[in-house]
Structure formats: structure tokens, C-alpha cells
Amino acid sequence: MNATVASPVKKPRSRKIAMPYLLLLPGMLWLITFFLIPILTLVKTSVNMDLANYDPTTGATGSFWGNFWYAFRTHEAPFARSFIYALAATLIALCIAYPLAYGIAFKAGRWKNVLLVLVVAPFFTSFILRTIAWKQILGQQGPVFRLLLDLHLVTYQSHITASAGAVIAGLSYNFLPFMTLPLYSSLERIDPRTLEASGDLYANAFTTFRKVTLPLSLPGVVAGTLLTFIPAAGDYVNAEILGNPSTTMIGNVINAQFLRTSNYTLAAALSFVFMVIIIAIVLFYISRAGTEELV
């Protein structure tokens, strides 16, 4: 809003200064209205009442730290489970997705685009439907259990589903595309000539991978693990369909508090604590991994 911008002679320049802001405006407004303000509202909701000593007669509001500490302390187990399951699922997904992404980037030739779409294609059958399919495949009436039964590896009393292992397997399956796509896009940017050069310098395939491919694909590893870990930690569908009451994750608790018990204060406090932990983990991880720009 200074004189040079307003003067008619410099008009093309002023348009150039305003242009990025004009491009940003609608999207940013949307994110501020429907992401930032709601998150702040959530924080406000989390102190609507004092969680530790709730007294409906006075209707006293809670303190920030008091309520957050209370929410965390009373739900330590589901919090811990969420992060352990999500970590395990992320590592499994990384092991499965890396060779997959590597193959699509370097070995797929003209099928590259088709294979990439195949990675996203499961989204179209619906996440819930696929999770239910896993439950039935691994369930007592499913083919896997029948086969193991015939091989005398399991008995009628045992079960594969309704276990922590099944929840982790479900999580790693469901977020596999989120791991594969960023891995692919960082691998695809690697110039194949750098790999050839490494071979010319007498590095074997393993050394080439360890010293050239892996370091160059690190941004994809960081993005992929985050895009898998975050939704996996917050998920409650897998724990609900493939788990049992002792595999309850924090997502199940928050969901139940919001939609069944309607204890909005506790639900909001739990959500906020959860989000703070996630963001702390993300920031720590990014600073350790040393990638500057994620988006």
C-alpha cells in the first residue's frame, strides 16, 4: 500500500506483487476458516469444564494444563498403543512399499503410469470394505484359517483376528499407498546415470543402493513414513474391526467420547493432546532427518 504500488506508471509491477497473494487468497481463506479456526475452537472447547473435579453445580471451567494432563494421564494405555501400533505398521509398510516404489520407478518401463494408478486403485473399493474383507479372509471361516487348521498349525480355539497383530497388519495395509507414492516420486527423480556411475566405480548393487539410492530417496522415506504414521496413529477403524477390547487405540476413545458419550470437553482435550504429541514427533523427526521443505 505504498506510493509506488499505487502510481499508474508502475502498474504492471504492482500487479506482479499482488499476483501471488491473489492466487493464495481463496485456498488460504478456506484453510483458515475450516482448518485453523476449528482447531482453535477445539482448544477452547477442551477447557469448557474442569475434568479432574467436575462439579455440575458450579459449572467451573478447567485450566489448560489441568485438563490436558488429566486427559493424558487417564488414557496412557490407548495413547501408548496408538504410537506403538502406528510405528510397527509404518515400518512394515516401509519394507513392503520401498521395493514396490523402486520397481515402479526403475523397472516398470512404459507400465509406470498404470502401476502407479494400481497403487491408488484400492481407494475406490472403500477402506471399510477392504478392512472387512481382511477380517473375513483371516477370520475363523476364512481361507487362511481353514488352511492353517488343515496343517494343524492352529486349533479351533485360536484366532488370527481380534488381536494386536491383526490391527497392525490392517494399518500397514490400509496406508500402503500413502507410503508408496512419496517414495516413488523421490526415487523417480534419481538420474539412472548416477546409479551407473556408481557401478562403474566398482560398487556392487548393495553398495550402490546403500551409498547412492537410499540417501537420494530419503526425502521420500521421510514423507512416506509421516503420511503413514500420522493417519495410522489416529485411526480407529482397524482397531474396531480387527481388534479386541484390549487393543483400543486413542482414536477409538476420542471417537466414542465425541459421538457416543458426548463428553466434548474430554474428547477435545484428548484430541488436542494427541495432536500436540503428533506434531512434536513430526518436528523432531524432520529435524533429525534433515529435510528442509516437506511440501
Binding site: 482447531i39 477445539l42 472447547t45 489416529g234 495432536m275
Partner: peptide
């Protein structure tokens, strides 16, 4: 992208 879906959904519901 860094916020769990649950938090996004819940905070939108509150507002």
C-alpha cells in the same frame, strides 16, 4: 496433512 483425520473431523464438528 500432519493432523490426524480424527482431529480434523472433530474440530470441524465443534465449529
Amino acid at each position: 496433512m500432519a493432523s490426524p483425520e480424527l482431529v480434523l473431523g472433530a474440530s470441524l464438528l465443534t465449529i
